[in-house]
Amino acid sequence: MSAQAQKACLEVQDATRRFGGLVAVNAVSFQVKPRSVTAVIGPNGAGKTTLFNLISGALSPSSGRVLFEGVDVTAEPPEAKAARGLIRTFQLVKLFPELSAVENVKVGCHLRTRGGLLAALLRPRWARRMEAETEERARVLLELVGLAATADQPAAALSYGQARLLEVARALAAQPRLLMLDEPAAGLNADESARLATLIRRIADDGTAVLLIEHDMHLVMNTADEVVVVDFGKKIAQGAPDRIRQDPAVIAAYLG
C-alpha cells in the first residue's frame, strides 16, 4: 500500500442538516478509505438516509463539507458527483420500470460511453461497437448479481429483492470510485443477501470503496471494515465491527 492508498476516498466534515427546528444530521464527520467497506448503522430515524443525501448531492448540507478524493464537492449537484465516480442507490428502489433489466443497466453505462444525436442517427462504426460492448457489459453485470435469467424482463416485473440487485448492477455499470448503497439487503432472501455480501467484498477488494447503510447486522458484520453509528443525527461511535458490537453507547442506542 502506497501513501496514496491511505488518503481518504471520501471525507465528511461536520455535515449538518436542519429541517426547520429539527437537526436531522448534526456535525457528523468520518472518512471512507479506498478499497474499504464502511457501514453507517443506527436506529430508524437516526438520520442515515439524510446523511446519504448530503453526500450524494440530493440535499445540500446546512453546514459542513464533503470532500471526494481530496476535492470539495459539497455544492455539486448529483450528476456532477456521479461524473466524479460517486454513485449511489436508493432506499426506495428507483428503477426505470418500463425498460427491461438489461436496458436499465445500459442506462447505467451513460458516464462510461460517448455519443449524442449524431452518433444515434448516423450510427458510425465506433458507435455500433460501443453499443455491442454496452450490451455485453450489461449482461455480464446482470450475471454478476444473479439476474441473468431475468435480463429481458421489464424491471417492473421483478421481485423486490431482484429490483434491489438490479439497482446495484446498474450502479456498477457506472464504474464507481465510491459506491453508496442505501439498505441494499432490505427485502432480500438469505441466498440473495449472502450473494450480495460476497459481491460487496469483491467490489471493495477490486478497488472501489463502498459506503452502505444497512439494518441487516449480519451483512454489516460480514462485510464492513469500519462501522459508523449514528443516533438522533449524531455520530455516537466509530470503529471495527467487533469493537462496535461491544460499545456501550451503541448497545444503549439499540436497546434503550
Binding site: 450524494s56 448529483p78 456521479a82 428507483k94 428503477l95 442506462v107 455519443g115 450510427r123
Partner: peptide, 19 residues
C-alpha cells in the same frame, strides 16, 4: 441509442438518472 436511453432514464426516474 445512448441518447434514447438517457431520455428513457429521465422519463423513468429523474433522481435515479441524475445519480
Amino acid at each position: 441509442s445512448r441518447l434514447g436511453r438517457a431520455f428513457a432514464g429521465l422519463a423513468g426516474s429523474e433522481d435515479a438518472a441524475r445519480a
